[in-house]
């Protein structure tokens, strides 16, 4: 398993011990007209932890992530990044975040290399750093040899890899990843999962990670937050959620279905089979 080697942090980098969490969401609500996408949602992503954001379709996961990024403005509540309100210094906080949207919209008329160079310019990455890091990521995600092809010619998986590299290239302190493994081949998915664990454990990066694949959440997340219809249905470690659902030896799928109040799936499957 050839995971992407991580450059070590500079010596003057002081990771806060016992400091504020990487991300703290306090009582956030957001409505789109009559539709309440989020209602009084609170969650936190401690430094060096991977927090899985789970929920059925339309639960408000993407709205939550876009609010963290400042793409959407919460109607109520506040979002703190390392203790600082994102609305007070939006540019400064964005510099510390790496974001992979649910469906990565890349500039299709640029090549992969040109796009990553463009992203590096946006984050003010100096030429030396980008020369060191971009080829490293391209090789790690098996994009080397494709980097000079226009993105319009990429497969979905290749686009996702470019989006992932774009989120990682500036060495963010918080990663906000909306379904980051969509379309990835098994090797790249494994590289990504291992890389996220490494970044969290070794570099203290906080990760907010949304997925529908519960096995992935079970494998890499330290804690999970389950959103349902815009409210936090449950949050905590997997074992605490098992206890709460009264399913001590069940996997996350059973726990998820129990906590989100899903009805009798057997009946649905039987009806659809006819």
């Amino acid at each position: 398993m050839d995971a992407i080697p991580l450059p070590s942090r500079p010596p003057d980098d002081t990771r806060p011990e016992g400091g504020p969490p990487a991300l703290e969401v306090r009582g956030v609500s957001k409505a789109f007209g009559p539709v309440r996408a989020l209602s009084n949602v609170s969650l936190s992503v401690p430094v060096g932890q991977i927090v899985g954001l789970l929920g059925p379709n339309g639960a408000g996961k993407s709205t939550m992530m876009k609010s963290v990024l400042g793409l959407l403005r919460p109607d109520v509540g506040e979002i703190l990044l390392f203790g600082r309100n994102v609305r007070e210094d939006p540019v400064g906080t964005k510099r510390q975040i790496g974001y992979v949207p649910e469906s990565a919209s890349l500039y299709e008329f640029l090549t992969g290399a040109e796009y990553l160079d463009f992203v590096a310019d946006m984050y003010g990455l100096d030429p030396e750093a980008r020369r060191a890091r971009i080829p490293q990521f391209l090789t790690g995600f098996e994009l080397a040899g494709h980097e000079n092809t226009l993105i319009s010619g990429y497969s979905q998986g290749m686009r996702q890899k470019v989006a992932l590299i774009a989120a990682l290239v500036h060495r963010p302190r918080l990663l906000v990843l909306d379904e980051p493994l969509n379309g990835l081949d098994p090797r790249s998915a494994r590289v990504t999962k291992d890389l996220l664990k490494n970044l969290a454990v070794r570099e203290g990066v906080g990760v907010l990670f949304s997925t529908h694949v519960l096995e992935i959440a079970e494998a890499i997340c330290d804690r999970v937050v389950i959103l349902n219809r815009g409210v936090v249905a449950a949050s905590g470690t997997l074992s605490s959620l098992r206890d709460r659902a009264g399913l001590a030896s069940s996997d996350l799928e059973e726990v998820f279905l129990a906590l989100t109040g899903t009805g009798d799936l057997g009946e649905v499957v039987t009806a659809l089979s006819h």
Partner: peptide, 9 residues
């Protein structure tokens, strides 16, 4: 697909 000459960052 269209390829463009390789360019360093």
């Amino acid at each position: 697909e269209a390829r463009v000459e390789a360019a360093a960052p």
